[in-house]
């Protein structure tokens, strides 16, 4: 078929290569849904337990400081940091910046590195405090 090479091609929706920006995009959703469900329940439980009396609060603390609670806590805090950093990235893209391929990829990767780093820092702080 004859084609004028100076005119743009229509997007090839079936030809693509996996990239960090795609991972960050779907992670923004996954972490958002996780925080909106599990995170919201945890927040409500903590507040209701604190309002209901020492026994309810002891039950909450028992779960929250057990291995299962700490696992959920690490997961939720990572989800929070990932959602927060990719949300900040969204703000930059909302003003029309950061769409150049290399820059876009760099900052997508940085949200992944940053969320793991912040999670590690937070739990190092918490577990160090629990020892002392």
């Amino acid at each position: 078929m004859n084609r004028n090479p100076s005119r743009p091609l229509s997007p090839h929706l079936s030809i693509w290569r996996w990239g960090p920006h795609m991972l960050v995009s779907i992670l923004h959703r996954v972490t958002g849904v996780g925080l909106a469900t599990l995170g919201a329940v945890a927040l409500i439980w903590w507040l209701m337990a604190a309002a209901s009396g020492p026994d309810s609060y002891a039950t909450f603390l028992h779960w929250a400081t057990g291995w299962f609670g700490i696992l959920v806590g690490i997961g939720l805090s990572w989800a929070f940091f990932q959602h927060m950093l990719s949300g900040l990235r969204h703000f930059v893209m909302d003003i029309g910046a950061g769409y150049e391929l290399s820059r876009n990829k760099f900052w997508a990767n940085m949200t992944l590195v940053g969320s793991v780093l912040l999670t590690a820092l937070l739990w190092a702080w918490i577990l160090w405090g629990m020892r002392g």
């Binding site: 919201a40 927040l43 409500i44 507040l47 209701m48 604190a50 309002a51």
Partner: peptide, 13 residues
């Protein structure tokens, strides 16, 4: 409902 429970808890305290 979720927000109402959380708000109630804080107000109660």
């Amino acid at each position: 409902a979720g927000a109402a429970f959380a708000l109630f808890a804080v107000l109660k305290i």
